[in-house]
């Protein structure tokens, strides 16, 4: 066990966990931020996507020991009022069916738009291909990303 100080959604948290503990389980089990989802544990589905210094990161394979001083943003901290352009676009297009994968999809999409403000269909498909949606809402996800980008 070791002590770590984490910066999550602009707040500082101290946790005492094994160094190998993936950030996902620190967020869920220790900080009680369950918006970040467990789907596969192998960075294959994207449900656990958070931002590490603004970049999309799969938290299920990221040991807490490697987080360091990085700023972590989870779905709970993407915006204060749930009004980030991506969140608003998700509601406008009524994207979700079961909804389980959507926080990962939203975090990944928000990271895409930071680096690529006006993505093409191909850019969206490539960047989002690591995020599985079993309900098959991919079309609406793409529409929502375009709306959020102002296209």
């Amino acid at each position: 066990m070791a002590k770590y100080t984490l910066k999550v959604n602009g707040k500082t948290f101290k946790v005492d966990v094994d160094a190998s503990t993936p950030l996902l389980w620190v967020l869920r089990d220790h900080l009680h931020l369950p918006g970040t989802k467990y789907g596969c544990g192998m960075a294959l589905c994207g449900a656990c996507t958070v931002h590490l210094n603004g970049a999309a990161t799969r938290s299920c394979v990221l040991p807490v020991s490697s987080v360091g001083k990085s700023e972590i943003t989870t779905i709970e901290g993407l915006s204060e009022q749930g009004d980030h352009p991506v969140q608003k676009a998700w509601l406008e297009h009524d994207v979700a069916q079961c909804g389980y994968c959507q926080s990962g999809q939203i975090m990944n999409a928000a990271a895409l738009l930071k680096t690529t403000p006006n993505p093409t269909d191909e850019e969206i498909e490539n960047f989002m291909s690591g995020n599985i949606c079993r309900c098959g809402t991919y079309l609406r996800i793409k529409e929502a990303i375009k709306t959020a980008s102002g296209q």
Binding site: P34, T36, T74, I75, G82, Q87, W90, L91, A96, G99
Partner: peptide, 23 residues
């Protein structure tokens, strides 16, 4: 007449809706 998902706002903000989220 289309109505938005009643739980949409909770889904997009990561509220604990699912069984795995129960604590």
């Amino acid at each position: 007449n289309s109505k938005k998902n009643a739980e949409g706002p909770k889904i997009v903000t990561g509220k604990p809706l699912f069984g795995l989220d129960y604590w």
